[in-house]
């Protein structure tokens, strides 16, 4: 199938780091800030988002030939909302995930308005074939999980002294209460964003020097 734009591999790799949805595109900030107080809710959110993103990418890619330009956003939203509702029901129904569903509460239905998903429908799957759309969905999902995981790791270890609920800090560690509260999310995100940007710029400079 003649397809313009990046290949499946480029989409997959791009979603993880070079075009990381959180660190490079600054998309999906609502869950990034809200559910990263611990690894368990962060990974549940990453999993639910991955399910919705990959499913929506597949469906949109399959019907891309039928899309009317002025109705495409409506179709994207409809598709995303359907899969979010399914994800919400699954989280509530599986006994192992039920406590997480209660903890995440309205943040699961709010995946509908996570613009990283609709941006992938618009940028990739409404223009490219099924294979590329799937690779893109998986790559971006991994990138999102990586971003949520990195923020949640910092916040949970410093704020609760645990990782996935398991104690990791030495006895006598005083929890930084602020890290599990909303300000901790902003502080961590800001510092990690700055770090990612710094690494990116250094790499850029080195590449330019190499050329000269």
């Amino acid at each position: 199938m003649p397809s313009q734009g990046p290949t499946a591999l480029e989409r997959f790799v791009g979603g993880i780091l070079p075009e990381n949805p959180v660190y490079r595109q600054l998309l999906g900030m609502c869950p990034t800030l809200a559910v990263t107080g611990g690894m368990k809710p962060a990974m549940t959110m990453a999993g639910a988002t991955a399910f919705v993103l990959i499913s929506a990418n597949v469906i949109v890619s399959l019907i891309r030939g039928l899309l009317k330009p002025h109705l495409r956003i409506l179709v994207f939203t409809l598709t995303i909302a359907t899969f979010v509702t399914i994800a919400d029901l699954i989280l509530k129904a599986v006994p192992a995930l039920y406590p997480m569903s209660k903890e995440l509460g309205p943040y699961v239905p709010l995946i509908i308005v996570n613009c990283l998903i609709i941006s992938r429908c618009e940028i990739c799957s409404s223009k490219q074939g099924l294979g590329i759309a799937m690779a893109d969905g998986v790559g971006v999902s991994l990138g999102f999980a990586l971003a949520l995981g990195s923020i949640a790791t910092v916040r949970e270890i410093l704020g609760s002294g645990t990782w996935f609920g398991q104690p990791v800090m030495p006895d006598g560690w005083a929890n930084w209460g602020i890290m599990v509260l909303p300000p901790g999310a902003f502080l961590t995100l800001g510092l990690l964003l700055g770090g990612a940007e710094w690494i990116g710029q250094r790499r850029e400079k080195r590449r330019e020097k190499g050329k000269v």
Binding site: I63, L67, K68, L71, L74, L78, T82, T85, I86
Partner: peptide, 17 residues
């Protein structure tokens, strides 16, 4: 397409529910 999708999605959601 929107109408058809709404019907298909509605049916699918009813089934899952």
């Amino acid at each position: 397409l929107v109408i058809l999708l709404a019907l298909v999605y509605g049916g699918a959601l009813a089934g899952v529910q």
